[in-house]
Amino acid sequence: MAKKIPELPASTLADIAFMLLIFFLVTTTMDVDSGLRRRLSPMPPEDMEDTPPIKERNVFIVLVDKSNRLMVEGELMQISNLREKAKEFLANPDNSDKLPEKKLVEIPFLGEYEVSKGVISLQNDVGTQYGTYIAVMNELVGAYNELRDELSRREFGKPYNNLDKDRRKAVQKAIPMLLSEAEPKKVGGK
């Protein structure tokens, strides 16, 4: 009879594994980075000609000054009201002649759709707080997202986030995110 191989002592294995486990527990950071996605506009070419001026009714001007006050189309406003106002501007439900024009565009899945020519222009001061800027930006992006979601529910009966790629593209075409950020004015100190 062959000699029996003595069993390996496995009791210390748990200790070693525990030590490793504790090390990874401590070094783990589970936070998923999240944020407001934006795309910057590319640098204009040197020899660019002046773009044709945009009609005043097609521009929605949002100004934030250095004491974080918000002025929308010449009126002081609270950030909480901004989203509604921006949505009204972009949708122009009553075809008012003060709000932006619309252009009929042929879009797959949607047929002829009246695409608004409205542009939101966001201008901030050098002294504006970043937190306020993000809050304003959040409301404006939120206005676009809500409009897209409404359109998607109306046309396809599902929320925008559940659409497939082609339909999402169509909705994006119907409600393009035109959010321009003007160069900040350098007025006042820091």
Binding site: D33, G35, L36, R38, R39, L40, S41, M43
Partner: peptide
């Protein structure tokens, strides 16, 4: 960032 044409950004929040 625009000069470096790194145009995809996210404002972490």
């Amino acid at each position: 960032l625009r000069k470096a044409s790194a145009l995809n950004i996210t404002y972490s929040s």
